[in-house]
């Protein structure tokens, strides 16, 4: 005990113990997401892009009663939320849409979301009545030689949310 109070906690070993804690957090971070986290974003991924670069995108559309599709500004749609994370909101919605039928709590929360979506769409374009919200996730291909983006998406996954 005397050893602990004199050596371990009086400075000599504290940096070493602290470093070990940081290393443990880094190892854990490979398996679970932790907040607060001292593991910084790594910008992982370095694919060969000598001709093309494939990048993920997620888009949000509203479809009116006559089938007309309008691309929505994600920041406007989530206007009262943290604008920098709009893509992640859409990812969470995509995940929830897979599970809400088996989860009563999620099912009731989804009703609030639909009410929220209707209100936001009315604010964005009061002249139209939208019937469906479409979230489209896919890959875009960027030609690195000509510096051009191909307009069509590949590996598209679409989720339709009807707005009663």
């Amino acid at each position: 005990m005397k050893y602990l109070s004199t050596k371990l906690f009086k400075g000599k070993f504290i940096p070493l113990v602290y470093l070990c804690i940081l290393v443990v957090q880094f190892i854990l971070h490979r398996y679970i997401i932790i907040y607060p986290s001292l593991v910084f974003p790594g910008f992982t991924g370095a694919p060969k892009i000598d001709k093309e670069a494939i990048i993920p995108v997620v888009n949000l559309y509203a479809i009116s009663g006559n089938g007309q599709r309008m691309k929505l500004d994600k920041k406007d749609f989530f206007s009262n939320l943290y604008y920098k994370h709009v893509n992640y909101f859409l990812n969470v919605i995509l995940e929830n849409e897979k599970n809400y039928k088996n989860n009563p709590k999620l099912y009731s929360r989804r009703r609030d979301f639909i009410y929220f979506a209707q209100r936001q769409l009315r604010l964005m374009d009061p002249s139209k009545e939208f019937k469906v919200l479409l979230i489209e996730k896919g890959d875009m291909t960027y030609n690195t030689i000509e510096d051009k983006m191909k307009p069509e998406l590949t590996n598209v996954k679409s989720v339709f949310i009807s707005l009663p």
């Binding site: 932790i34 907040y35 939320l81 943290y82 995940e95 929830n96 929360r109 989804r110 979301f113």
Partner: peptide, 17 residues
């Protein structure tokens, strides 16, 4: 602003308060 956030979006990290 978090007071008005929908619980439908609530998706905290695995290890978070």
């Amino acid at each position: 602003w978090l007071g008005g956030a929908l619980d439908y979006f609530f998706s905290p990290p695995t290890a978070s308060l």
